[in-house]
Amino acid sequence: MTFTRRNFLAAAAGGSLTAATGSVWSQNSSLKISHQFPGGNITDGDFRDRLCRRFAQEVEKRTGGALKSTVYAGSSLMKTNAQFSSMRKGALDMSLVPLSYAGGEVAETNIGLMPALVPSYEVGAAWKTAEVGKLMTKVLEDKGIVVISWIWQAGGVASRTRPLLQPDDAKGLKVRGGSREMDMMLKQAGASVITLPSNEIYSAMQTGAMDAAMTSSTSFISFKLEEIAKHLTTGRNKSYWFMFEPLMMSKEVFDKLPKSQRDTVMAVGAELEVFAREAARADDKLAADVYAKAGAKVYDMDEATLKKWQDIARVTAWKDFNDKNESCAAMLKAAQKLI
């Protein structure tokens, strides 16, 4: 959020800066929404970018132009890994970012990409109103973050040399898991792990620094990994890779909005969750089609294979997360009630 020097001076002259800034926020406000994904427009492109643009358009419409937004795609406003901490400080208004990227800063956020803990979109959607969602909401608000849209995405594995489907397939491969917890499961299966944001996967695979990458179906498409990968394990059937990738707002920024605007922001955010879920499901199927058309071999995971990975996750990532602190243990216990 910004207000001009003229607004500031007028407020200071009137001896009521708080009242003036409140008026500015309600009448002449502009949100900056940052994300790491390729930019497009409101109808075409990566659905996460489209969701941000839909949010901006609908909020502006419902507030009569009082609350506008600008979307900064492709990490053009700030680096990917700086977004969460910037929101906490009030230096960034909003971001759509994988929550697990904040795991080094807030331990509880690692549950956002916990292998095999969320096995379906239905389970992910249930988090919002279940005990685990309430615990997550409280943790994030205490850290200065408000969740606006609850978004889950399935994913899989794109690989250059050989398929990665069964745990035994991981042995000897250099793999990007996407979270510390996913990496723990992969290491136990015999892989070497690579840590980097999804928008850096292409170059790492292209140079041979990485053999395989786990990411969302949408990112498989948006980052054009079919140009490099020869094998794809999809997320369209079963998957141990479900990522919580919410649209979030700085609590400092949120709290300064008039109540009517806060209500509008939350209402629009909730309505967009249906769009996100349908778009994510569509991309699970589209990714398989895109890779098959490019000549890659496509594989789907079955229940038996998922269970093998879940058994590994339970004694590695789940146990590690549970042992971090009482808050993490409570969240894990609550999440397990849904599967």
Rank of each mutant, 00 (worst) to 15 (best):
residue 2 T to G: 11
residue 2 T to H: 11
residue 4 T to L: 07
residue 9 L to V: 11
residue 10 A to F: 12
residue 13 A to R: 09
residue 17 L to E: 13
residue 18 T to D: 15
residue 18 T to S: 09
residue 24 V to S: 14
residue 24 V to R: 09
residue 26 S to Q: 12
residue 33 I to A: 02
residue 37 F to G: 05
residue 44 D to Y: 09
residue 54 R to C: 12
residue 57 Q to E: 13
residue 58 E to I: 13
residue 63 T to S: 13
residue 70 T to K: 12
residue 73 A to N: 00
residue 79 K to N: 13
residue 81 N to C: 11
residue 86 S to A: 15
residue 88 R to E: 06
residue 88 R to V: 09
residue 95 S to W: 00
residue 96 L to C: 01
residue 113 L to D: 06
residue 123 V to I: 08
residue 123 V to D: 04
residue 125 A to W: 10
residue 136 M to F: 12
residue 140 L to N: 00
residue 140 L to Q: 00
residue 140 L to T: 04
residue 141 E to C: 05
residue 144 G to A: 01
residue 146 V to I: 12
residue 157 V to M: 10
residue 165 L to W: 03
residue 173 L to T: 05
residue 177 G to K: 05
residue 182 M to H: 05
residue 187 K to P: 00
residue 188 Q to K: 14
residue 192 S to R: 03
residue 195 T to K: 10
residue 200 E to G: 10
residue 206 Q to I: 10
residue 213 A to M: 03
residue 214 M to L: 11
residue 216 S to L: 02
residue 218 T to C: 05
residue 218 T to L: 04
residue 225 L to K: 00
residue 235 G to V: 01
residue 243 M to A: 14
residue 245 E to H: 15
residue 251 K to A: 06
residue 254 F to R: 01
residue 255 D to C: 10
residue 260 S to Q: 12
residue 261 Q to C: 03
residue 267 A to L: 06
residue 268 V to S: 00
residue 271 E to Y: 06
residue 273 E to T: 08
residue 285 K to Q: 14
residue 288 A to P: 03
residue 292 A to K: 15
residue 293 K to T: 15
residue 294 A to R: 06
residue 298 V to T: 06
residue 299 Y to T: 01
residue 300 D to R: 08
residue 305 T to L: 11
residue 309 W to G: 00
residue 311 D to W: 10
residue 313 A to I: 03
residue 322 N to L: 09
residue 325 N to E: 04
residue 334 A to E: 09
residue 337 K to T: 14
